[in-house]
Each structure stands twice: as C-alpha cells, then as structure tokens.
Nucleic acid binder design. Structure first.
Lengths: 193, 193, 193, 193
DNA sequence: GATGAATGAGGTTTCATTCAT
DNA sequence: AATGAATGAAACCTCATTCAT
C-alpha cells in the first residue's frame, strides 16, 4: 500500500494525474495492475489518499516546528523554513501540492476529499493567524490577510518549484534567506524606503 | 480557426487539457469535429498554437505599455498593471498560463512548442532586465534576479488566480496597489524597517 | 442503432445480459466497439432501450387486437393469441421478457427503467381488467385477480419458451387451443367436473 | 463445504450467478477465499454441485410424500403441496430453480451438469406420469402431457415467485387452494362450464 | 471545405483463480 | 487444511483521429 502511494506520488508529480495510468503505478511499484484495487477503490481514491496523507504530514511538520509563543515575525520565518525543509524531503509532492493549493480552485486533476480540504485550510490558517496577530500588534503593516497569505503562498511555491530541482543542498540557505527577507520587507511596519 | 482557439481556451481553462475533448471544442465552436483537423494537426498542436498566440498577445500587450526610458521601479509597476489588465481580459487563459509559466517545468498538459518557450522566456526577460537595471543603478537592492523574477511571478499569478474570479471590477485597484507595494518594499534599496 | 438493438436482442436472449459483451454486440452488428457508445450511454442503457422498445411494441400489438367491447372471455382469448403471435415474431425477446416480467422481481440483469416498468405494468393491466370484469359479470368465478394474472403469465410464458423453439409453424394451433382451453376451464364460472 | 453451498445459494439467489463473487461467498461462509477451491474446482462446479444437491433434495422431498397408489388427482395435489412446502423452506433456491427449470433452456448462468439434468428430468417425470395415468384412466381429459406439465410448472413457479416473498405463512393456504383448483378445473374430464 | 459516423487503441476496473505461507 | 494477497485476462468505456460523403 505504501508502495503504491510512493509510486503514485512520483508519477503524478512527473506526468500529472491524467497522464499517469494505473498500470504505470503498478509497474513502478512492482505489482500487478489489479493489486492496486485491493487497497484503493479507484484511481481517484488513491489520489485522495495520497493527498490526505501528504497534507497531514505537512501539517504535522509545520506544527512540530511552530512556536505559538514566538513573535509573528519569527513564526513566519519558521513557517517558511519548515515549508522549505518539508519539500526538500518531498520534492515530488511539491508539484501536486502547488496545483491543489489554490484554495478556491477546482483542481483539474480530481476532486479533493473533504478531509484534504480541511487539512489544506488548516495549513493556510497557521500562516494567516500569524499575520493577523502581527497586524494587531502593529509589527506588520495593515492589509487584507488573505491577500497576504495568497501572495506568500504563490511566492514560496514558485520559488520552491524552480529551485528544488537544483542539485541537493545548493544555495538552499540563500534561497531561504531571500524568501524571508523579501516577505519581511513587504510585511513589516515602518517607512518604505 | 479563431473560433476553435476561442473554444479551446475556454474549455482547457475550465476543465483542463485532458478532460476537454475535440468534440467539446468543435461543438462550442459550432463546427463539425473533423473540421478542426483542417486547421490543426492534432489536439496537441491546437494547444501549442493557442499558447503561442496567447503568449504572443501577452508579450505584445506588455511591450505596448512598456517604456524603456522609465525608471526600473516604474517599469515594474507598469508590468504589474499590464499583467493585471491582460488577464482581466483573458481570465480563462490565466489558469493555463499559470500552469505553463514555471519555466523549467515539463508541462503536465502537453509539450510546449519551442516558439512558445521562446515567448515565455521573453516575457520573463522584460521583468528580469528591469530588475537587473534597477540593481545596477542602486535603486533596487542586490539579489539573484532570477530568484526575484520567480518570486514576483508566483506572487502575482497566485493573487490573480485567487482574485480574478471575483465579480468584475471589484477591489481591483486595491489588489494592484497591494501587489505593487509588496513587491517594491521587497525590492527597493534602503534600510529594512 | 437498430443494428445494435437487433444484435443485442439476439445475444442477450442467447447468452444473458452479463455474458454478452459489448464487443460481441458490435461484432454481430458489424461495427467497431466504440460505435455503440455513440448511440447508447452504456450497456445498461442499451438494455433499457431494448426493453422499452420491445415492451412498447408488445403493448401496441396487444392494443391493436384488443376489443374493449368483446366479452371478457373473448378478450382473454385474444390476448393469448396476440401474445403467441407476437412472440412467434420475436422469439429471441421471449427469453428476456420472461425474466423481466415477474413484476415484483428485481431483475438480475440490470435495473429496469421507469418507462419499462410502466409498460410492463400496462401489459399486465389489460389482462387483469378483463379478468376483473369477467368476475364482476359472473362469467368468471371469483378469485384474487392478481393471482390469476400471475398464473396465466407463468403458464403462457413457460409454454411459449418451451414450444417456440420448435420448427416454425408446428402444432401452433394446438398449443394455442390448449392454453385457451386450460385457462378457460380454470376461470369460467360453473360446477367443477 | 456445506457452509459454502449455503452461502452460495443465498447469494446466487439474491444477486445472480455473475454478480456473486467467490470472495462474497467465502466471506459469508466465514472462510478464506482460497478455501473454496479445496472443495470445488471452480465457481461453475460449485454452482453445479449446489444445483444437484438441491434438485436431489427436491426429488427426495417429492418422493417421500408421493403415494403411487393414490389417484392421479390426489397425486397431483400432493405434488403441488409438496412443491409449495419445499420452497417455503428453500425460498432462496426458488429463484435459481425457476431459471434452470425450463428443460430445453441453456441456462444463462452456467452449464448444468448431466446429473442435474437427470434430476430435473425425474422431477418432471413424476408429474408427467401422474398426468398420463389420469388420462389413461379417463379421470383427466386428453392432451399432450408435456404441454400440461409445462403449463403446471410455469403456473406454479410464477405464483411461488410472486407470493413466497410475502411474510411467512400469509395466505399460503389460499394460494395453494387456488393453484390446485385452477389446475384441476383445467385437467379434469367432463363438460366445460 | 465541412462533416460527423466510425474506429480501435488505450484507460479503468473486476474477479476467478493461484500459491507461498 | 486454510489463507488471502497477488495476478492478469477480460470487461466496460473514452476519445483523438480518419475518411467517405
């Protein structure tokens, strides 16, 4: 079962949901085609299960590193670093994630399960709350928090998509520093240069 | 032929490349299925042609508004406003565009033609050159220009995806102001707050 | 389309619904497999359409010969004769019909459409009304009309199934005479022998 | 082994032969799937064995109650009552039986074993001999005995199918009385009303 | 040029049967 | 003896593409 999820993750990320066949997945997992159906009701269910598991793992990953006591700015830094770490270990998933993470979007791949929606929402909420608190405390300047979250999501997703392809470990520190810096300049209260 | 491209744009954006059938396109264009093949070799060729035309139109749109004499900061503002304008008039295309605009990405829909790749590159180059010049002139702080372009692309794409769904004209000014401000704070040289 | 219905009728009757494949039907109809789906949404829809058409034809056939003015006894005779005629010209359908004609039964083949149910009901109603009227007029002895209809249906179906296999035209007169006589003796009022 | 036959009987009757999977049967019998194959060569063999056993039980049931000394009319009455009793205790089997009992029919489920054919034949023969003797003795009027047997089979099968669904014990006496009466009126010699 | 019926390769899914444990 | 995971042939269905009209 794990075998199928692993194979599916790799192939969905590489070729997309529709272009990946159940036979592809079975072959990569080194099983017969029919075997998948002992564990998953359908291709869509397999996709759903994959998304749920990954999103749950991502949410756990974020929560583990999250420090509710920290200042909003530090929380945001932590979230960026955690996102980066997670996707360095889950490079394949990033592509799927980026597609499914536009909250209002009907994915073009397959319908998200309610559980997956819920998880996606919670991931976004962590960032949004940090931002809202920062705005209340005056540390961040005022803006529509949803707009800010959207900007940050898009920015980080795209950079990760672009740079996580690079050979392991290259510039990673710089990239993270750039993202954090860019975001903070955009967010922190104070005079514009 | 225009009819087919228009129909294809709408359907690809709505349902995705794979879920859209040639019959769907023909029906929406009010032609017979076979007729498409008088103008396009294959579904993939139709998709490629669509992308090329739209990217060319987008590039034209950017160029028309672009003022090579303006300051880098103004050029960037102009590019953001132009992007926003273009996609307000081409809402459907935005979804396709966002998917195909990650430069290194193998598209999950169909292979991009070399011409489309070229056009995509040129769009990005306009922004990159403005940024590079701004850095040289000291107006912008120093950073990897590709990283900056990627951040800006992701940020604007995601916000547009999220907000262009909104009923025509709503908040558009504010959204554009937010994007410009956020980007400029991130880019302009000077002390961080 | 007619071709497919004809082929399906023959094969469903011969081998049953489940054992008949869409490829079988296409091959017998001398078309490619996919062609069927231009005319019928699914195998089940094809089966439903077949049943509806045939039941409608059967009902028409009965109605054409039916004489509402005739005595109940004559009406019954007519119905038996009409049934026999119809199934002599629709031998293949008889097998399907016999399976689907037990009114309360969930068919084991595929779900009947509401339209088909309606038609089946109307066929049975014609007989039931003749019987009820005969009972009211005293021509027939009293009994539960539904029980009587069921008995007559089973009796005639089974005989037709058994004898319509015989080479065309053999004994047909005798068989019909037997059925009519057997039923009338069972129904007509008066002393039992 | 009995467990499997019991489970199979129930499921074949409920859902039909093809819709019932070996896994269904094993699960209901509370064994592993593979275990069935210790006792039965194949699904078809299981079906055959089930039919043979049930038909043998039915034949035994008929024979036990059968009195060769009785008058043809009483023998027929006994056979009808016996049939009714048997299927009240074997409701599930009735559906299978009704399908397989048209003697000339190629079953649509699976091929009958020669043994099963033989048993089916013997059940029919008991009725046929009673009828033939009644005709010889003049108690019954003359007709093709096979036709008569077919009529009686169809009539009783259909009524049982229709009425044995009813809650246990309801109207059973009346239904039996109706069948017996209807048949006797059809068969007994003497003036028609 | 235009059509749309026809096609068949290829996808998803089912399930009788096998076999290592 | 018993198991149940694994299998793959075969079923249903989709749809890009062709071609006779």
């Amino acid at each position: 079962m794990e075998d199928f999820l692993r194979a599916a993750e790799r192939l969905f990320a590489e070729k997309g949901y529709r272009q990946t066949t159940m036979e592809d997945i079975a072959r990569l997992a080194e099983y017969g085609t029919g075997t998948i159906y002992r564990y998953f009701e359908s291709k869509e269910a397999l996709y759903g299960e994959l998304l749920e598991r990954k999103l749950a793992a991502y949410l756990d990953h974020l929560r583990e590193r999250f420090d509710a006591q920290a200042s909003p700015r530090d929380r945001l830094r932590t979230l960026v670093r955690a996102k980066m770490d997670f996707f360095r270990q889950n490079r394949e998933f990033l592509r799927i994630f980026a597609q499914e993470f536009v909250p209002e979007a009907t994915s073009m791949a397959a319908a998200l399960t309610p559980e997956a929606r819920e998880l996606r929402e919670r991931c976004l909420t962590m960032t949004r709350e940090a931002i809202e608190e920062g705005m209340r405390s005056g540390e961040f300047r005022s803006a529509d928090p949803v707009l800010v979250v959207t900007a940050i999501s898009g920015l980080t997703n795209e950079i990760l998509l672009r740079y996580l392809r690079a050979p392991e470990g290259e510039h990673i520190g710089e990239i993270e520093a750039f993202m954090t810096d860019f975001m903070e300049r955009g967010l922190l209260a104070g005079e514009r240069p």
